[in-house]
Amino acid sequence: MPAPILHLGAVITCMHAGPAQPLTPFPRVMVSGQPVVTLSTPYAVTGCALTGTGAPPCATAQWVTGAVRVMAGGAPVIIQTSQAVCTPTGTGLLPLVAQTRVLAT
């Protein structure tokens, strides 16, 4: 099923509401004037609210699924339905807001 492609300006948080930002978006492909994010792009998570539980908060995240049919630089682009894993908690990322003009499967 088609879903919006994620880009540098997409609003993404960890499961504990900590903002997540891509560290190295793919600059050669743009959507809505901003670089896309590929499966190889690591994310930095700041302000994870998982505190006071004895478990460390989310620090980084890596996408594990991406688009099947759309690539950028040989790597699958990330779409709004993609799955990610945060380190060290093992939870995921929540894509909240993404551009809506370009869809991928």
Rank of each mutant, 00 (worst) to 15 (best):
Q34W: 00
M1Q: 13
M71L: 14
Q62E: 12
L8V: 04
G9I: 02
V68D: 13
W63K: 00
A67H: 11
T105G: 13
L103S: 09
P4A: 02
S82T: 03
C86V: 08
T81N: 09
A17C: 15
V31D: 02
T53M: 13
R69N: 14
C58F: 05
M15L: 13
P19T: 06
T87M: 13
Q21V: 06
R28P: 02
P2S: 08
G90S: 12
V11S: 13
V11D: 06
Q21G: 04
P4N: 04
G92N: 07
T38Y: 01
T24W: 04
L23R: 04
Q21C: 09
L96H: 14
I79T: 14
V37L: 01
Q62N: 12
V31H: 02
G18I: 03
M30F: 09
L50Q: 12
H7I: 08
T13D: 05
T91I: 12
A84M: 07
P42D: 02
A104M: 03
P4Y: 01
V85I: 15
A55G: 13
Y43D: 07
T13M: 08
V68Y: 10
V29W: 07
V68T: 14
T51H: 13
L93T: 03
G73R: 02
A72I: 04
Q62W: 10
V70N: 00
P25E: 02
V36S: 05
A84F: 11
V64I: 10
I79F: 07
S32H: 10
T87L: 14
A3C: 06
V102M: 01
H7C: 11
C48Q: 14
L94S: 08
G74P: 06
P19M: 11
G54A: 07
M71E: 10
G33V: 01
T60G: 13
L93V: 04
R69I: 11
T41G: 04
A59S: 04
V29E: 05
Y43L: 10
G18S: 06
P88H: 10
S40P: 09
G52N: 08
G66Q: 06
A98R: 00
T105D: 15
V36Y: 02
T38P: 00
Q21M: 14
V45R: 03
A75W: 06
P42G: 02
G74E: 09
L39H: 03
L103T: 07
V70C: 00
Q99G: 14
I5Y: 02
A61G: 12
A49Y: 11
T51D: 11
T60N: 14
T24K: 05
S82E: 09
I79N: 06
P57C: 06
T87F: 15
P25K: 02
T46G: 12
A104T: 01
G54H: 09
T38W: 00
C86D: 08
A98P: 03
A98I: 00
L8R: 08
L39V: 06
A67F: 11
L23V: 12
P56C: 08
L39E: 03
C86S: 06
